[in-house]
Design a protein around this nucleic acid. Structure first.
Lengths: 195, 195
DNA sequence: TAACCTACCAAACACTTGTTAGGGAAGGAG
DNA sequence: CTCCTTCCCTAACAAGTGTTTGGTAGGTTA
């Protein structure tokens, strides 16, 4: 159950790719089975249900993400460095779990109601707390501008970072670190030429 | 056919809300009919198919959007003003067609392949041309920084603007113009305090 | 009144969906 | 060789899907 043989993880990775490409609802278990080289019924030897596959994909991703975030938040960095580290770790996580992030981005909103996916709401709340707290700390320390609505800024940053999962391709032109660097430069310094 | 009686538009608006809330695939024609106060089969008096509802929702939205964009692009503004106007019109369009934008954001990627939705690809291409062109013009005119990857910047801006449809609520705390102003301030000037 | 159009309902259709039950091939353990 | 576990297949299921067909109540027109 808890120890996952390699075949199981292989199928799960395949399912994640199909979910990400077609959407959870539009993905039939037969499509997953096709992509995994087996028949639909055979999936149920490894998994309880289609929903449990989704569950495992999302929770695995979130566990990995929070392991990184917790490290950053515990490091005692200044607000600007914390923001930079959070952004960088987010893009790195997109690099590592691209499919899972795309699924999360697309499906989390409706899953929030379902009791089974309650951890999504918890994660989202912690998420907001970490980012908003960093922004507030930055304003208090006079590292960030005080005239901006902090909640709006949070939404802008959050959205831009995570939506990147829909166009980012590992091994493409830009590495995760390069994308993070460019985005941070944009959001911190702006795109207007300094006069 | 082309002239739409009021009841037809009413149903279409209802369908758009349900599509936006639940996703196109997860939305059954029976749910749409429920929300419209009728039975599933009755929808087919007004529409050819579920897909044609989606088609009409998206094409109506894109037509309205491009009417605004074309006006902005034909105004002969400088790059910074053009960028500002495009962002502002986008947020206004989210205000007016929130459901349609949410559907577009969520479904356009898979629809691109289908011949019926070929206009989505056309629109996307024009979209990229308009935004990239404005950014390039800004760099050439030394209004924007030259050290940023313009394609990445385009993606960042595009994503942030349109994803707003997923959290924006008309009549909420911020108006479309206020959101546009704050976002433009962020992306143009950055959030770091000037020293 | 009679013919007609609009907007809907009732009931079914063929198909796809997630899921289950029973069986069997392959290979290691005794 | 025999037993057992692992992993998959075959075949079916009940429910839900988009869509079609024929009918009908009620208002408008002639």
């Amino acid at each position: 159950m808890s120890t996952a043989p390699q075949r199981r993880e292989e199928i799960l990775a395949t399912a994640a790719e199909v979910f990400a490409a077609q959407g959870y609802n539009a993905t039939t278990v037969r499509k997953i089975a096709d992509a995994a080289g087996m028949l639909a019924g055979s999936l149920y030897y490894h998994f309880d249900s289609k929903e449990s596959m989704l569950d495992e994909i999302l929770s695995t991703f979130l566990d990995a993400l929070w392991a990184r975030y917790d490290t950053v938040l515990a490091a005692g960095l200044g607000p600007r460095e914390t923001l930079g580290a959070l952004v960088t770790e987010s893009f790195r996580e997109i690099d590592r779990h691209r499919a899972a992030v795309a699924i999360y981005q697309r499906e989390s909103k409706h899953l929030l109601d379902q009791p089974r996916f309650g951890y999504l709401a918890d994660s989202q709340a912690q998420f907001e707390k970490a980012w908003l707290g960093t922004l507030e700390r930055g304003v208090a320390a006079e590292a960030f501008r005080a005239d901006l609505d902090i909640r709006l800024t949070y939404r802008f940053v959050r959205d831009t970072v995570w939506v990147a999962a829909s166009w980012y391709r590992p091994g493409g032109q830009h590495s995760a670190e390069e994308i993070a660097r460019q985005y941070l430069s944009t959001v911190l310094e702006g795109i207007a030429r300094r006069t």
